[in-house]
Design a binder for these strands. Structure first.
Lengths: 219, 219
DNA sequence: CTTATTATTTAGTTTCATCTAAATATTTGT
DNA sequence: ACAAATATTTAGATGAAACTAAATAATAAG
């Protein structure tokens, strides 16, 4: 399994909503910042290896083996991110690029020991769940902040966009995972929100709200 | 800089006794388990990139940049080995393969933070010195056990062969870095040695002695 | 001082992952 | 339902990094 093959599986997994939907050539090309023709080539190869199903012009979806492989790479990525933040004090906006490299290190033993060393974390620094050794992925009832109703309260549990610029924005505005948020008002015109977060009120754009996941708390 | 290029630089550095001697095509091919013709190709490329000097039929030697790059890779390799042993409890015979992969992760920040996290170690688990950030390599007065005279005392400071089989042999026979060793007798016929190690006597073959480094202690 | 041996290089091929340009299939809009 | 737009695939090329087989240079041996 090459780095490139692993990256394709990861991208297809993400695009396919955990393997349910079939994924188009162009979507993969976009996600991976490559050309559709390159995707066709790779997809043929992965298909021959039994990692995904492919019929011309009909998109692809991962096989069981393909899904397990993708989850194994995602597991590595997320565990390494935890390591970088917890043990090496990187901030959450600096770890993605490095984890993109570390996720390809081949050693199950290594990742298991690292996992133990970190105390078997369940989530990465961006709130994404870490797949188990067996390839089970915890699915939570998190919702985008844009989908919450006025007066609903939630706890910020994850980000959708993990780009450095978005994460830096959150840091600068003192919004962190675990924070309690209540929707005070929604602006019809631009979809922006008035929220109460940790005793202070603030106004956030729709763009921001649509990249923050919350878990609604009753009451 | 590709993984392969880094591996070539590392191999040439090791073969060239820290850049002093010029290294032959065949020696590199042997070291890297590849064909001489492949070496010629790569050496031409590295030469064009200014990492080594190459004249047909006359071997190569690293430039300043080439040496610095090699040392940077070696630094990464050794720091990762310390991490694997100290933090993840790998044994010293398991870390080489994994470090061969980790040494190619591109991030100076990562290796500096890891270095700090480990308390700025000076030696890797096999007793090899870790180059500084600036590319300085501590050279010690260690000598092979085969070069020590009868009645000389030394401290075991490093191994020459880092293969799993040799290291496992040492573990099994309770020989570890830091142990005090005295040469009791040398057998003319096969070069084997009678040694005193930590209150017990044992007999070791020339093959073993020629892969153990000691630092002679006076008295 | 030739010849034989060994070392090294050249030339041409392969595999991998990408690309561009062109061809073909599918989908959409009227 | 047909043309236009979009998506996808094919064909052919490129750059790494390896290989094999053949040619050439350097070295060693008689």
């Amino acid at each position: 399994m090459t780095h490139s093959e692993e990256n394709y599986l990861k991208a297809i997994f993400h695009l396919g909503k955990m393997g349910a939907e079939s994924v188009s050539t162009n979507a993969i090309a976009d996600e991976m910042d490559t050309k559709p023709s390159s995707v066709t080539d790779m997809v043929k190869k992965l298909s021959e290896k039994g990692l995904l199903h492919y019929k011309k012009y009909q998109g692809v979806h991962l096989t069981g083996t393909g899904t397990r492989t993708a989850l194994s790479v995602i597991r590595k990525h997320r565990i390494w991110e935890v390591f970088l933040v917890e043990k090496l004090s990187f901030s959450w906006d600096e770890v993605h690029e490095i984890a993109e490299q570390l996720e390809h290190i081949k050693s199950e033993e290594l990742i298991d020991r690292l996992d133990a060393h970190l105390g078997f974390p369940k989530y990465d620094p961006h709130g994404d769940p870490i797949p188990s050794r067996e390839g089970k992925l915890k699915l939570s009832d998190k919702r985008l902040l844009t989908e919450a109703a006025i007066n609903e309260k939630g706890i910020c549990v994850a980000v959708k966009d993990s780009s450095a610029s978005f994460l830096k924005f959150l840091d600068k505005n003192k919004i962190a995972l675990g924070d309690h948020i209540m929707i005070l008002d929604k602006e019809e015109f631009d979809g922006s929100l008035e929220i109460q977060i940790k005793q202070r009120k603030m106004h956030i754009s729709n763009e921001i709200a649509s990249n923050l996941y919350v878990k609604i708390v009753e009451g």
